[in-house]
Amino acid sequence: MTEAVGRAWPRTARLDAPQIIDRIADITGVRLVLEGPAPGGEVGAAFVRWPDGRRSVLTEGRSRSGPLVDRARRAGIPTARHELAAHVDGARVIVQQRLPGAPPDDVDLPLVRQLVALNDRLAGLLADVPAPKPSDLYLLSDGPGFCLHQPLAEHSARSAELLERIHAVGAANGSAMVGDDLVHFDFHPGNVLVDRGRVTGLIDWDGATRGDRHFDLVTLRFWLTGRGDHLLAPIEQRLAGLSRRRRDTYWAHISLRMVDWSIRHHDEAAVDHWLTVAETGLDGDLSSG
């Protein structure tokens, strides 16, 4: 197989904040003032100001994630309150509380330990809620705008081989996540706010779901692979009791998600990086960085 050069894969559109602000005013009568783009994020977010001077963050996302965010906050996790949710031209948009702090410039051991401690607080948070069907991890079919399979199949021989291994994990283990924990679903340093070394916010709960909180730790470990074994040690301590079956399933999901997204939205250096990280886990040894 040769590299699939120039293929126009579908891309997720970035937030068009001025247009959304105009539409919110049309729909609700509330005129927000755009202050500028918020840092980080793949789809984008914007800082806005209410007529009374309050400062908030405008994003696209699932308005139904609000109750899950509230539940996380009651468990001691710093999350932003949803202040307005609306359907705008077929998209869900959320205006939420602006939390103090900014994404970290670097990841150190104290930050990793704080993230592991926050993950502990997710345990059993949905045990009192009737269980819906298990969360799909899309190992055998496309996800809704992410975890697409065809980009891996066509991009290169290397990505196609990775996809075959992901399919094998899905066929052997299933493609569902079960559990009573609250799962953030995109648990990595880019979705953290920090102020003077202290975590002040865990943001972007758009994918939040019911399942196994260890899924978030596998995601965090994926992101930190290659940055030093000292950063991985606290994560490995929590993952020590996780079954090989679950660990492989979670790793296969984040491998698919990150490689697909980088093929469709980033350059070859990013694709190569995430392929390399993915391969370290699917080789069957996650115990070394």
Rank of each mutant, 00 (worst) to 15 (best):
T200N: 12
P67N: 13
V30Q: 15
R257N: 08
H167M: 06
V48I: 13
L242Y: 02
G66K: 08
S156R: 12
H266F: 10
C147M: 11
E60C: 06
W261E: 12
R247F: 10
D272E: 15
R64C: 10
A269C: 07
E161G: 07
D195C: 08
R196L: 11
V199M: 12
R246N: 14
I77K: 10
E154Y: 08
Q96K: 15
A168N: 04
P104Q: 05
W9N: 09
I27N: 09
W205K: 15
H82V: 07
E42C: 04
D52G: 02
I27L: 15
D204T: 04
L111D: 07
G174H: 11
V88K: 02
A80T: 03
R227T: 06
G179Q: 12
L232E: 01
H155G: 02
G44T: 03
R31I: 02
I94M: 12
H188W: 15
A240H: 05
T280N: 09
L15S: 00
T280M: 11
Y138T: 08
S288Y: 02
G44F: 03
L137K: 12
D248K: 04
I77A: 11
D26T: 03
V69C: 13
P100G: 11
R113C: 14
R54C: 05
S65D: 14
R227N: 10
L122M: 11
P151W: 11
A176L: 14
G6L: 09
H87N: 15
R198E: 15
S159T: 14
D216T: 04
D216Q: 05
W50T: 08
E35C: 13
L256V: 04
T276F: 04
V5K: 14
E60W: 00
V95Q: 13
G41T: 01
V178S: 15
G289P: 06
